[in-house]
């Protein structure tokens, strides 16, 4: 059962990473327009300069 000493911190760390990732997506406004983002990928134009919208979600 010594392996637990490694596995439990590792699992907690991975969970924490996921949570941090979620915070990051939330802060970047990635849930503001889920439908539009899903369709934009079908758009043939290449967006050279995607708008920075970090502190202004709308």
């Amino acid at each position: 059962m010594d392996v637990l000493v490694i596995l439990i911190p590792v699992s907690l760390l991975l969970g924490g990473l996921g949570l941090a990732g979620f915070f990051w997506t939330l802060r970047k406004g990635q849930y503001d327009d889920p439908e539009g983002d899903a369709r934009r990928i079908l758009n043939p134009d290449y967006d050279d300069a995607p708008a920075a919208r970090d502190d202004d979600p709308r």
């Binding site: 503001d32 327009d33 889920p34 439908e35 539009g36 934009r40 758009n43 134009d45």
Partner: peptide, 22 residues
């Protein structure tokens, strides 16, 4: 989305236009 954004972008004085489909 792309038609509206391109058309609004062509309007003189418009710096950027962004459509939110949701």
């Amino acid at each position: 989305i792309s038609r509206i954004e391109r058309d609004l972008g062509d309007h003189p004085g418009v710096q950027s236009a962004r459509v939110n489909l949701t």
